[in-house]
Computed example of a mutant assay.
Amino acid sequence: MKIAMISNNSIPVPPSEYGGTQREIYYLTEELVRSGHEVILFAKKGSIAKATATYVYPYDDKRKQLEFIMRHIPKDVDIIHDHCGLVAKSNPPIPTIRSYHGARKAIHVQIPVYVSKTILQKYGENEGYYLHNGIRLTDYRFRQKKKNYLLYIGRIEPMKGVHLAIEVAKKTGLKLLIAGPYDHNKVQKKYFNEVISPQLNKQIRYIGSVGGEEKQVLLSKARCVLFPSVWDEPFGIVMIEALACGTPVLGFQDGGAVPEVLHGLPQLICRNTKDMVTKVLNPSAFPSAHQCRQYVEYHYSERVMVDKALSLYRKILKGNHYKIYPDSEWNNLAAKRGWL
């Protein structure tokens, strides 16, 4: 099968630090190629995923990016997997699916694909499909023996519940390391300066955004990772990254897809911060490091993700779910440019 994989022009594939969507594109691309398929990747300059062919955007303008894709996409592509919406909304004459990595309803696309069943049901109203994220286990350092600190890793913003991680740390008396970026917009800056920063001390430390080796060390050595999201988390890739390192992760039952992702490890799902504190103080109830990693291998490895992606591609192609519109934006632009 020949697949066109569409990323955006903001973060390379894979990202050096933060960028969950681009990391998923990376794993999907390389595992598809390893499985004998051809992947044509359109992405930001600096992308090093081992695709069959990679085209880097020479423009920031989205209309020009679309034209760039139209000029370079092979005519014999079987399906387009669009992760940013650039192509899907133009309705090309090639079956196209649009992956949504956030918690919102798909608009102006024929075949939306969400990253969890939870988001498909709540926001997609069961129109479309879902495809769980996956990771490459060999990219994550496994460690059985842990150190006595808690770890929060993710964006620093209210809906991620960083303040709740701090509350848990204070009530348990354990050291908490907070790692992740925060944008300097008004809301996030105010949250960091007024809510997080005043609580930082020797016990509770903010260490900035991390990636690569530093992230591996932090994840693999933590007593547990706290994932106290208080919004409709679309998936929560940090959870499976922690588990792949053999590190348990605690999240809330009302945290969007958290209970879906952790369905096989129910002892890690918390009702509230009080419950989270109780679980942190009772690590003997955690699954073992080997059980954590095995859980990811069985449910969220890149192999599992790609097998499900291929099943979805074949279903779309076989079922004639995608409609071709002669007067689509793609076809009209192609006619205007003389590319038909």
Rank of each mutant, 00 (worst) to 15 (best):
K44M: 12
A309M: 10
Y140W: 14
T138I: 14
P15V: 07
V168W: 09
L262K: 09
H81W: 14
F286K: 14
E24K: 07
I240G: 08
L151S: 06
V195P: 13
K44I: 11
K215E: 06
G85Y: 10
A257D: 01
I3M: 02
N193M: 15
K146F: 04
A165K: 05
K186P: 09
G154C: 00
D307H: 15
D76R: 11
D76W: 08
H163A: 14
G208C: 01
T273F: 00
Q267F: 02
R143W: 12
G20H: 01
T138Q: 14
Q216S: 14
G36T: 00
Y18D: 03
Y182N: 10
D82H: 01
M5A: 07
Q199D: 05
G255S: 02
C270L: 03
P58M: 10
L200S: 12
D61I: 05
Q291C: 04
S99M: 10
I316M: 08
N201D: 11
G173W: 05
K190Q: 14
V280K: 03
K215D: 07
K189C: 09
N332H: 06
K89L: 11
G264H: 12
G102E: 11
L120C: 08
I178G: 07
L268G: 05
M5L: 09
Q121G: 05
I107F: 12
L28S: 06
E24R: 09
G251F: 12
Q294E: 09
G46F: 01
L312C: 05
T273L: 03
I111R: 00
A103L: 01
V238K: 00
Y295G: 03
Q253Y: 04
F192L: 11
L265V: 06
C270A: 03
G173E: 04
Q253L: 07
M1C: 10
C245E: 09
I25N: 04
V168N: 08
Y59F: 15
R205Q: 15
R104W: 13
P248L: 03
K45W: 08
R337N: 00
K147V: 13
A51M: 05
E157D: 10
I316Q: 06
P74C: 11
I237R: 06
S220M: 13
M70V: 12
K50M: 12
K279Y: 09
P93I: 11
Q144P: 12
E329R: 15
T21Y: 00
G256V: 00
G180D: 07
E260L: 03
N148D: 15
L131G: 01
E194N: 14
Y152N: 02
Y322E: 02
K146E: 02
A165V: 06
E214T: 15
R155N: 08
E167C: 11
Q188K: 11
I316K: 06
S10F: 14
F227R: 05
A49K: 01
G212H: 05
Q110C: 07
